[in-house]
Amino acid sequence: MVGPSFLSAAFSRISLVAPCINSTRGITLYSNPLLFKTTAYLNAEPLKKKKRIDPQILKQREERKKRRLEKQIRRLEKNARQFKPIDELEVPLKLIDERELRTRNLSPISPEEEERRALLFKAWARYKREQRLEEIQMIDRVIFCQQKAMDELRKESEDLYQKAIQLDTELIPFEATGPMRTPPIKAYEGPDGEYIDVSKKW
């Protein structure tokens, strides 16, 4: 007779003796104790009967819904026409009121001064024109110089030329910080300050 020990050796995961339950069924496939189990869920249940609603009420409900939507649309349309005010573009009322008080009482400009100013404006225009011309010539010169270098390179080696005209992705996006008005102060620590955000919320 083959004893239970043999069976348990053959099917190690099958427990022959359920620990808490004294049952005539000797074999179960679960290793943990067999306890109460609730049904997991119902897969189906009988359909509910549809409620009949009075068509009058239905109509009323729909009406109410419509009215609410219309109201919302009206409110949106009303607000859409109002823009955020731009403070900088509006002259403060205080300034308009105090205009008289705030105007400067300066003596009128003498004709000589006016003449000097007119001449200075003309001289400035000439100066800027010259500067601009020089700039254009400089750019032309640099481009011409580069073109010449490229031509020479192509004469020497087509391969190197092709390598040179490849896109240099390291340059994009290009960033440069311009010259400042004053040189940086070495080992300068900026004073601490409070950051107050005064921008309005709309």
């Binding site: 640099v142 110089c145 580069q146 270098a149 390179l153 390598k163 040179a164 005209i165 240099d168």
Partner: peptide, 29 residues
């Protein structure tokens, strides 16, 4: 050729010097 130029800088002036190459196209000849 631009790699040659960068190598030239490293060979002559050491690797400590950091520069930003302005394009692979030669500027002058």
């Amino acid at each position: 050729l631009h790699e040659t130029a960068l190598r030239a800088l490293e060979e002559n002036c050491g690797g400590d010097l950091k520069v930003k190459l302005l394009g692979r196209v030669p500027w002058g000849f």
